[in-house]
Amino acid sequence: MDQALQHLVNGTVLGGTYALLGIGLTLIFGVMRVVNFTHGELYAFGAYMTYAFVSLLGVNFFAALALATLCGVALGAALELVLLRRMRKADIDSVMLVMIGASLVLQNGEMWAWGGVAKLVPNPFNGSPLVIGPVSVLPLRLFVLAVSAALLLGFWLMLDRTRAGVAMRATFQDPETAALMGVRIGWVNTATFAIGSGLAAAAGALLGPVFMVSPTMGDLVGLKAFAIVILGGLGSLPGATLGGFALGFVEEYAGGYLSTEYRDAFGFLLIILVLALKPQGLVPAKERIG
């Protein structure tokens, strides 16, 4: 029983960050029809920026998190302006390949810049766990969960309450009509990709200090993000949140009770099962935003 409670806490903490990863990917797909293969690399980029600000420049930890997220937004905007903007007429496959190329450049550029040795990011939280009854959790992890929740909430409010959000939702539902109604699709795309990238970088900035920062850290995370998004239904924001927590719990409980060897395989098996039984994902894309 103690073990089950601990797994519940671990699964929630893991699921929160998975949701953050999934949201950014599914938003970009929903608005732009782009499968973003650089998502994992933006995650790594956010983590490296946090490391650079905290360890090399001596910036305050919390300020570093915000700065790293902004760097992610800037890199996302740059990728959109330099690569994706020229490819708006291209088919979805060509765009995917360009993004794969970009992810190779980013990952190896990171290795070039930082070397292959993994880094730890110092953080101001107490390294001893908080113990509540049978359950223990690091204060840092609780902080990450809280910030993830705040980011998700802020993101929803932005979509719901701001003009940019309305423009995004309109483009999401019907790009042609949105363009006719005066939405400047080009800038909506730039904003979308920048925000989606910022969310990935934020996830990296938050999780970098929890785990470690290394050039290949984006590989598995990129694959996981795909899994989350497919689980929830491509382009569905509630689905990505649900998919994130579903994957977190499946991995945690299956890994804890069945076999740790297959821990990462359960996620992928779940996807194949979902696709075989309910090909449009858990939350079909019609109910995507708002």
């Binding site: 499968v35 979805i92 998004v229 497919i230 491509l234 060897e261 297959y262 992928f268």
Partner: peptide, 25 residues
């Protein structure tokens, strides 16, 4: 082929991943 486009791409990636897990374990 029940699913197309981006779904097809991602399902093929997952298929290769599952095989890798099987080979691994």
């Amino acid at each position: 082929f029940r699913v197309r486009g981006a779904y097809f791409v991602i399902i093929t990636i997952c298929f290769a991943q599952v095989l890798r897990m099987v080979a691994l374990n």
